[in-house]
């Protein structure tokens, strides 16, 4: 059952959104987030939303999947909504105890919630349409300038790749260890939170030991395959910037500019 998890939630496809250079996609997401935070007024928000809707439509990712990405942040969304509704000064509509509902509050809450929702959705769209390897490659490239400041960018992205590679292996191992412990009478399902957490200790210890052993073997195997850090390393799939990417980049820039104009001059 644990084996079925999808790695990094990537849904392969051939849409233009999938085919964009991952470096460009990361930059597009950053630009979109900037635009979201600059947006002001109903029209600006509507414009941001239609941009996102267009991208989701193009990517052919089912809207249901997009909504699923919101689940983990549902609490934050509700919390933000409540805080904004009741604690924004303005025209009072309703008052009870420490709660004061204002007209400005309702608008603020709506804006904040849609801002968060769009933010999460656009980052989700990035991971849904970009393979983890392409994403780490893009990050390595984009963070490249930091190498000059002696930030170990290559090592960082290599760590990410290896972590992604070993998630399913370690999950499988956890499954095995838990079964072995259960066979000898361990109980993971009953008792309160503390009892359950304690029951996990005999699972975690062997898991850690084996993770260290694996790391050691992997390091030897990598050395035998001539790994010597990022220096002089080439790639099987070189990232290249195509005409489609140029178009996408220009369109994104235009849209961000449009959000600025709508927010600050038009309204």
């Amino acid at each position: 059952m644990l084996k079925d998890i999808t790695l990094g939630q990537y849904f392969p496809g051939q849409s233009p959104i999938h085919r964009f250079d991952p470096r460009l996609k990361v930059l597009m997401v950053v630009a979109y987030i900037v635009a979201l935070f600059c947006a002001d007024g109903l029209w600006a928000y509507l414009f941001c939303f239609s941009m996102l809707a267009l991208c989701i439509g193009l990517s052919r990712i089912r809207p249901k999947m997009m909504l699923r990405g919101l689940k983990p942040v549902l609490f934050i969304i509700c919390f933000t909504a409540v805080l904004n509704m009741f604690y924004t000064p303005g025209v009072v509509l309703w008052h009870w105890w420490i709660f004061t509902l204002t007209r400005e509050g309702i608008f603020n809450a709506l804006y904040m919630v849609s801002r968060i929702v769009m933010l999460i959705m656009c980052t989700a769209l990035l991971t849904y349409t970009t393979s983890p390897i392409a994403l780490t490659d893009a990050l390595e490239y984009l963070l490249g300038p930091l190498k000059k400041l002696r930030v170990p960018v290559h090592e960082f992205t290599m760590m990410m790749t290896i972590a992604l590679r070993f998630i399913p292996t370690l999950i499988e191992e956890t499954d095995k260890i838990m079964s072995a412990q259960k066979a000898r009478g361990a109980d993971f399902e009953s008792g309160n939170l503390i009892a359950r957490a304690k029951a996990l200790v005999p699972v975690l210890v062997p898991l850690f030991v084996s993770a260290f052993r694996r790391a050691d073997e992997l390091a030897t195997a990598m050395e035998c395959r001539l790994y010597h850090g990022g220096e002089g390393r080439t790639r099987l799939n070189e990232l290249h910037f195509a005409r489609l990417d140029l178009l996408g980049g220009v369109l994104t820039a235009a849209c961000v500019a449009a959000v600025f104009v709508i927010s600050h001059f038009w309204a």
């Binding site: 790695l7 393979s131 983890p132 390897i133 790749t161 290896i162 992604l164 590679r165 292996t169 694996r214 073997e217 992997l218 195997a221 990598m222 395959r225 001539l226 790994y227 010597h228 002089g232 390393r233 080439t234 790639r235 099987l236 799939n237 070189e238």
Partner: peptide, 24 residues
């Protein structure tokens, strides 16, 4: 399990030649 580095088969096979700095 302990000698496969990448999350895609061909990327893993490419690991050594990538380290050798060969053209793609």
């Amino acid at each position: 399990d302990n000698q496969i580095v990448a999350t895609v088969v061909e990327e893993d096979v490419a690991f050594a030649p990538e380290n050798m700095g060969l053209p793609s």
